[in-house]
Write a protein that binds this DNA or RNA. Structure first.
Lengths: 114, 114
DNA sequence: GTCAGGCATCGACGACCGTCGATGTCTTCG
DNA sequence: CGAAGACATCGACGGTCGTCGATGCCTGAC
């Protein structure tokens, strides 16, 4: 390493993601990197008003209510979902800002040439 | 459950992601859901020609060469990176199709209202 | 043919993740 | 008040992940 005359590789032209930015975005992707959580976000986003209650989400999967609650907590802790208690039921809503942050990640730092 | 008269929740208006689609997309997100791999993809995408050799990537991290090789293998196995051996060195290149597939995921199935 | 270097693979270890059953908390109803 | 239902939390289990040191393979140089 550190051989100045070698230059085996192409230099970095653009501005790659910083280590700090990577550490911040990775948790969001990690929260979404699960089939169940992906479907949960999709179900909530496709619901009227961009929100859905846990009882309905629970019926959409062959999983225990405890497992669904856990996944919702992960998504909420990652800042992807908002939680609102209405009476006996709890409604989760998508946070468009968080999703657009992920979308911007692929638009800004990884531009497809053509 | 299965009480037909309850209707506690909002009905699903849009078309949520299918279980099959979620199972297909989740591995891509899981491959990207790591700070090191995120920076690897970013570094490669920011390099000239959208490709970079392992020796250069190895110098950008405080990790073992074996670890970097492992992460590159994960990204390659997920279909996000292309591998090309040139002489002694190995070059990895981003696959724009795979990245745009992820980008489409957030554009198509989760449209931000405004 | 021998040597050096770039990269992949192997085996191992600790840490984390997804799922479950059981239990707790809180709200509404009668 | 007590009962029932919706949801969260707890503790535990097996599986996967990220990282490492050691080793193997393959290429180019001498």
């Amino acid at each position: 390493m550190s051989d100045p005359g070698l230059a085996c590789c192409t230099p970095l032209t653009g501005t790659p993601m910083s280590a700090n930015q990577a550490e911040q975005v990775a948790p969001l992707l990690k929260a979404l990197a699960d089939p169940v959580r992906l479907r949960l976000v999709s179900l909530i986003a496709a619901s009227a008003g961009g929100e859905a209650c846990v009882c309905d989400l629970n019926d959409a999967f062959d999983l225990t209510q405890a497992t669904i609650s856990h996944h919702l907590k992960v998504l909420h802790s990652a800042g992807l979902l908002d939680r609102e208690k209405r009476g006996v039921w709890v409604f989760y809503a998508v946070k468009p800002e968080a999703l657009s942050a992920v979308a911007n990640l692929f638009d800004t730092t990884m531009p497809v040439p053509a």
